[in-house]
Write a protein that binds this DNA or RNA. Structure first.
Lengths: 144, 144
DNA sequence: CGAACTGTAATCGCTTCGGTTACGAAATAA
DNA sequence: TTATTTCGTAACCGAAGCGATTACAGTTCG
């Protein structure tokens, strides 16, 4: 597991909010569907809120709800909301600068890694939250 | 850092081997350029050997060398030689099967994650080891 | 006010990562 | 044959990240 589970959980959460945007969902409700604890949900929600994807309200009857229409949320935004670091690691220690290879390989790696990461991100950008909900609930209606 | 540094190190190693394929390179030589320890190099070499990208020989004058021409090695092969797991993690615990969302979201996620991972892999497949060497050593010849 | 929420900090056990030591096997040199 | 060099692999260590859990202050509603 290279990319942690927060991304998958975030999509799960947003799909739940999209499925019924009439009343806010508590972190307890969501944790019940994800099968984890409410604090983990609220931590992920923090990133989603900073990114402007959800809002939430404390107090009785409070909870989280989508801040935008699901057609206007794509998976790349969700990804960036919960994953900050760049995908590929370079060397943990700086390579030998007296070696012609060691002193020049890192910029070259940055180039190919950046290109590959862009390809991944573009793929994620092609799917919206609305499409996810549609896929999930059309599966739900089918007989197993 | 999501994808560990082994991938970057593997490319570094292979570039070193490509730069001079006349005599085998010891894990000590390579560790000196990467700036790490020889055991770590040999561990990575194990994956590259299993994938048929390098061969190695023990004993005096031994070491590692490319098993194929650098034009016939692309970065996707290197990636798969050193990274086994799939890129995106799903839920750590199975989601609630009594929730219509929880019981259907994982296959949907598999779909979009697989598509994104394929886009990344295709991008990696477009670059060969020969191109990496060319980029590194054309940089090395330029004045800083 | 009291109950039901959120937001966040602190801590814990587990796993992975990379560094290190150790040692047996293979190949060459003398 | 013996000594030396090198690989291959296992074992262990410390550091870091992940997700679970407890705790608690702040906010909102009835």
């Amino acid at each position: 597991m290279a990319v942690n589970s927060r991304f998958a959980i975030a999509i799960h959460i947003l799909t739940m909010l999209d499925a019924d945007n009439q009343s806010p969902k508590t972190s307890d409700d969501l944790a019940g569907s994800v099968n984890t604890n409410p604090v983990f949900i609220r931590r992920i929600m923090g990133g989603l809120r900073k990114a402007g994807l959800v809002d939430s309200q404390p107090g009785v009857g409070g909870g989280a709800y989508l801040a935008r229409s699901p057609e206007q949320i794509n998976l790349l935004e969700v990804y960036k909301a919960v994953e900050e670091e760049q995908l590929f690691s370079l060397h943990t220690h700086q390579p030998n600068q007296y070696c012609p290879c060691g002193s020049n390989i890192q910029p070259v790696l940055q180039g190919v890694f950046g290109k590959a990461e862009s390809a991944l991100e573009q793929s994620l950008a092609e799917t919206t939250l609305a499409q996810i909900k549609q896929a999930v609930f059309s599966r739900a209606k089918q007989p197993k």
